[in-house]
Amino acid sequence: MTIGQRIKNRRIELNLSVDEVAERLNKNRATIYRYEKDDIKELPITVLEPLAKVLETTPADLMGWESTPNEKAGEIMNHSKEFEFPLNIRSAARDLMDLSDSDQELAINMIHSLAKKGRKANED
């Protein structure tokens, strides 16, 4: 994942618009879009630190030097072979981690609902 992708993902996670980030950094919206599209290859520390503060994270996280929660979850899934989960379950879990929080919740609720339906059918 690039720094631009991490910036955009974090902004979206916080439900911030490009305009809100631009205003807080005293930049114009085009500059923020350039950051998110990796048009600016090396962000100066004078931009990186305030940007990290606006995005409620660390400069190291934005640069990809620290694991994000989704990366940590991916690492856990990579170790899931120890638990002998079938490949399709591991793949579905990885896909689940790519969803927004609300879509993750929806998918998990659907799985619970289907499992409950299956248990009930087995009881009958």
Rank of each mutant, 00 (worst) to 15 (best):
T2C: 02
A60Q: 15
A115G: 00
L43K: 11
N78I: 09
R11H: 02
T46L: 06
R119I: 13
A60T: 12
E56L: 13
K41V: 14
E23P: 00
I3Q: 05
L62Q: 03
Q104F: 09
D124A: 10
I40G: 05
T46N: 08
N109H: 14
Q5K: 15
I89K: 07
T46H: 10
E123W: 09
G64M: 05
D103A: 14
N109P: 01
E49S: 13
R34G: 04
E56F: 03
E105Y: 11
I76D: 02
A115F: 11
I89L: 08
E23I: 07
R94C: 05
K53C: 07
V54D: 01
A22G: 04
K27C: 08
P59A: 11
E20I: 01
S100N: 03
K27H: 04
G4C: 01
A30F: 05
Q104K: 14
A30E: 11
S17N: 06
P59Q: 03
I3M: 14
E123P: 03
A93Q: 00
R34Y: 07
E56R: 12
M1P: 09
D103H: 08
T68Y: 01
K81Q: 14
K117P: 01
K72R: 13
K8Y: 06
G64A: 06
T2P: 03
E84D: 09
D101W: 04
G74M: 06
K27M: 09
G4L: 03
T58C: 05
I108P: 00
R119W: 06
T58I: 06
E42L: 14
D38V: 01
D101R: 14
D61M: 14
I12V: 15
A30N: 10
V54N: 00
A30M: 05
E42G: 02
Y33R: 09
D98P: 01
K116T: 15
G74R: 03
I108G: 07
T46Q: 10
I76G: 10
A22S: 03
I32V: 09
D19M: 07
V47R: 00
K27D: 03
S102H: 11
E75C: 03
E13A: 07
D103K: 05
K8H: 12
D38C: 07
T68I: 02
P44W: 01
I89C: 03
L55P: 05
P86R: 09
L14V: 02
L25A: 01
K53T: 15
A30G: 08
D61R: 13
R6D: 07
G118D: 10
R29A: 13
L51M: 12
E49V: 15
P44R: 02
K120N: 14
A60M: 13
D101S: 13
D95R: 06
H79I: 13
D95W: 09
E42W: 06
R94M: 10
E36M: 04
N26S: 09
R34I: 02
E123V: 15
L48I: 08
A92E: 11
D98N: 12
D101H: 10
T2H: 04
S67Y: 12
L43R: 03
E75W: 11
Y35T: 08
D39Q: 15
A60D: 15
